[in-house]
């Protein structure tokens, strides 16, 4: 908490007059309300498995997941996690990663674990964090 306060303090103390520290141009303020939910980025993949998987996922979302409500407490959701996992690695590792995610999803005490919270209030848990590559692991927020 102290860290956050501290960072806020820094922002406030330096925000003043910073506008002009970079040359700016004329710009219109948009009247529209900003979109609440950022558009889901569609995974684009050139590989055959990726394309197959993505179409499978589209069918899944058209037939089922669009209608059964927002059940997954993770971001990305389990289906997206699986697609990401396979795209990052291969079908076998991807399946193992999905098995692990599935197990963790069954855990009703997720709150005591160390997930950081995503902006949308879900547990931030991208597939890339499970590729065993230390350099690629990312956290959105400091987790105390």
């Amino acid at each position: 908490m102290r860290k956050i306060l501290y960072i806020l303090f820094f922002l406030v103390s330096t925000a003043y007059s910073q506008t002009d520290w970079q040359k700016w141009e004329a710009k219109q303020v948009s009247y529209e309300f900003p979109t609440k939910s950022a558009a889901q980025t569609q995974n684009e993949s050139a590989s055959l498995t990726g394309t197959l998987l993505n179409s499978l996922k589209s069918v899944y979302s058209f037939l089922i997941s669009d209608y059964d409500g927002d059940n997954c407490p993770f971001s990305p959701s389990c289906a997206n996690f699986f697609v990401e996992a396979v795209e990052e690695t291969n079908l076998i590792s991807g399946t193992l990663m999905f098995a692990d995610r599935f197990t963790r999803d069954m855990n009703v005490f997720k709150g005591v674990n160390h997930y950081s919270l995503h902006k949308n209030g879900k547990y931030f848990d991208p597939a890339i964090n499970y590729t065993l590559n230390l350099q690629k692991i990312k956290f959105e927020m400091v987790n105390n």
Partner: peptide
Amino acid sequence: FFYGGSIYGSAASAQIYNARLRFNLDS
């Protein structure tokens, strides 16, 4: 499925633990 997932997931969990360790120390 569960057995394989738990083995793989444990290794991944260790890496995440290490990454978090470094991340926290960095900050």
